[in-house]
Design a binder for these strands. Sequence first.
DNA 1: AAATATATTACGAAAATTGTATTATTTTAT
DNA 2: ATAAAATAATACAATTTTCGTAATATATTT
Lengths: 213, 213
Amino acid sequence: MTSPSKNRKRLQILASARDLFWKYGFRRVPIEEICRHAGASKMTFYRFFPNKIELAKAVFDEETGRGLERFRTILREESSSAEKIRKIFLLKMEGTHNISKEFLQDFYGNSEVGLKQYIDQKTKESWNEVLSDFRYAQDRGWFRRDLKPEFLYYFSQKVGDMLTDEKLLSLYPTAQDLIKEVTNFFAYGISPADQSRTSRDGEHERTQEPERP
Amino acid sequence: MTSPSKNRKRLQILASARDLFWKYGFRRVPIEEICRHAGASKMTFYRFFPNKIELAKAVFDEETGRGLERFRTILREESSSAEKIRKIFLLKMEGTHNISKEFLQDFYGNSEVGLKQYIDQKTKESWNEVLSDFRYAQDRGWFRRDLKPEFLYYFSQKVGDMLTDEKLLSLYPTAQDLIKEVTNFFAYGISPADQSRTSRDGEHERTQEPERP
DNA sequence: AAATATATTACGAAAATTGTATTATTTTAT
DNA sequence: ATAAAATAATACAATTTTCGTAATATATTT
């Protein structure tokens, strides 16, 4: 058995599936397209996965597991706040972690028994772990205290859908406030308050314009 | 003939088609899904459009026309830079203008004669107009001079794909530089340089960390 | 050279999509 | 209120897409 070779194509298929599922969702992507994208034949696919659903499960498990792992590693490692956010930035750019809306949407539509529950549970677990990790970092003063954990979570997920995501929008009174948060995030970074920021208001109530004395 | 009523459903279908095409591309979205999304029946669809291709053409025309119009209006109107960028922000949030990659991709795959050329030309025209408008504003000192026109264009298109867009990335030596641009954008906004920023380097060569005296 | 992994091609079955027809319901104008 | 128009709902055949398997050929590994 050629262990390394055996897994090579499998991982390529897995990666391609993730990329395509992420963008277009589960049902919109035919198996053959995944194979084309992965440079594999359909037969090779069926050697590793019995059908598309099992493939999707594998993708889901990979992401929740490995992505969360990477995220936690970055949060816990010995580095500056700026370095942390830079790495999370890059992690997000790779699109390596977290589950896309489109992917879950189609998965939910599937009437497979137990699948929805399985996903719900795993999602909730991951979410709680991320929040807990974030608060861990926040407690140690690595991140601003007035930055909502939910914000960084969503930010690290997908900058793309940030401003159109209903869930994220619902965290703020108006769309304006979300824009403020984004602006503040880029203006101040994630570092805790320091002596240079004396004119700030309370949490999430700063003016939209960055102060420039 | 009830003119207003006649166009109501048609516009809803058009809007739904745009939303779905934008996200998933042309071929991945069945007509019935568009109808569902628009709250219209299939028969109503076929009353307005002979087939999906004609619908896509209509969507394309609408977007290049109306979207560009709105963009230019914002750029040209009498308002502050901050106000302009805010409106462009909101415009982008609505996802109202510019053509998505997925949409064009599928359109290109279609062997319809002349379609590709038609799209290419219209796209190029719009692109040139936007750039020209941008430089117009830049010349009048409304925007920073060291902000690449291409950047604002892409920014206004889709913040989402910003950091994964190959074209945009290729405008910068490294991904770091793009991140710098994003950071600077949010840190300084689009306003021209003022007295508060004396420690800046040359174009696109500032440090990644915002200065905080 | 043998064994294994993969690609290619073909294929039938199942499912999805398209486009049309028919009839019922709702909306609009008079 | 009534007629006309617009729309919805349903059903349908024709077409296309997708799925999953098989048989055979090619490439890779051992």
